[in-house]
Amino acid sequence: MTFTFAGIDHVQLAAPEGCEVEARDFFGSLLGWQELPKPEPLRARGGVWFQCGTHQVHIGVEKNFTPAAKAHPAFLVHDLQALREHLIQLGAHVIDDNARSEENIRRFYMNDPFGNRLEFMEWL
């Protein structure tokens, strides 16, 4: 083979039409991710993009939206406990999961405002 995979450029999460304000509140204000300008040809489609570490998360509008309840991105975090405490202090609902604690992985889940499952994890 002459090709190789370099990794993931971005993850796209679907959301309903008119999601932009809630997306900015959740991903921008609550999680603290920086909003990225969308390229001009894509702006009319709606949605909003964010920077998460070295990756991007794109919130894209889907007409007949159904949240992803099982399939999910997992975000690698340094000091997961501090993020958990921050989210709880701001009233967010987190779901602890210790199913991988024997592998020295700490993690929790939560849903974005649209019902998409998100995992946050830290290798210990």
Rank of each mutant, 00 (worst) to 15 (best):
Gly18Trp: 03
Gly32Gln: 05
Phe3Asp: 00
Phe5His: 04
Lys70Leu: 15
Phe120Arg: 01
His78Ala: 15
Glu35Gly: 06
Pro37Ala: 07
Glu103Tyr: 12
Phe108Asp: 04
Gly7Lys: 04
Val48Asp: 02
Gln51Arg: 15
Trp49Thr: 03
Phe27Asn: 01
Thr2Asn: 12
Leu83Gln: 13
Thr54Val: 08
Phe5Asn: 04
Ile88Glu: 13
His10Glu: 06
Pro37Gln: 05
His10Tyr: 13
Ser29Lys: 09
Ala82Arg: 03
Phe120Ile: 10
Gly91Leu: 11
Phe27Tyr: 15
Phe65Ser: 11
Asp97His: 09
Met1Gln: 09
Lys38Thr: 06
Val11Glu: 06
Ala14Ile: 02
Gly46Lys: 08
Glu35Val: 13
Arg100Asn: 01
Phe5Thr: 07
Lys63His: 11
His93Tyr: 11
Gly7Val: 05
Phe27Leu: 02
Asp96Gln: 14
Trp49His: 03
His55Arg: 09
Asn111Phe: 01
Leu90Cys: 10
Gln51Glu: 14
Val48His: 03
Glu102Asn: 12
Ile95Lys: 10
Thr54Ala: 13
Cys19Ser: 13
Leu13Gly: 00
His58Lys: 07
Gly60Ser: 15
Phe75Met: 13
Arg106Leu: 13
Val61Tyr: 10
Ile88Phe: 05
Arg100Phe: 00
Gly60Gln: 11
Arg117Tyr: 03
Pro16Lys: 06
Ile105Gly: 09
Val21Thr: 12
Leu36Cys: 07
Leu87Thr: 12
Glu102Cys: 06
Val94Asn: 04
Leu87Pro: 10
Glu20Gly: 12
Glu85Gly: 10
Gly46Val: 06
Glu22Ala: 15
Pro73Val: 10
Trp49Met: 03
Gly47Gln: 01
His72Phe: 07
His55Leu: 08
Val57Ser: 02
His55Met: 09
Asp79Lys: 04
Arg107Trp: 08
Trp123Val: 12
Leu90Glu: 08
Asp97Phe: 07
Ile95Glu: 15
Ala92Arg: 03
Trp123Tyr: 15
Val21Ala: 15
Glu119Pro: 04
Asp97Tyr: 06
Val11Ser: 05
His78Cys: 08
Lys38Cys: 03
Arg106Pro: 05
Gln81Ser: 08
Arg43Ile: 10
Trp123Gln: 15
Asp25His: 14
Gly7Glu: 09
Phe114Met: 03
Ser101Ala: 13
Glu62Ser: 12
Glu22Cys: 07
Glu62Thr: 11
Arg45Tyr: 05
Ala99Tyr: 11
Ala23Ser: 08
Glu17Leu: 02
Leu118Lys: 02
Thr2Trp: 07
Phe5Arg: 05
Thr2Phe: 05
Asp112Leu: 03
Glu40Cys: 08
Ala74Val: 12
Phe3Leu: 01
Leu31Trp: 01
Pro67Trp: 00
Asn98Thr: 14
Thr4His: 14
His58Ile: 02
Leu90Phe: 12
Phe114Glu: 01
Ile8Tyr: 00
Arg84Met: 12
Asn98Asp: 15
Gln81Val: 11
Pro39Ala: 10
Asp96Val: 12
Glu22Trp: 04
Glu20Asp: 14
Asp97Ile: 09
Val11Leu: 08
Asp25Gly: 08
Gln51Val: 04
Pro67Phe: 01
Gly7Pro: 05
Leu83Trp: 11
Glu40Gly: 09
Met1Thr: 06
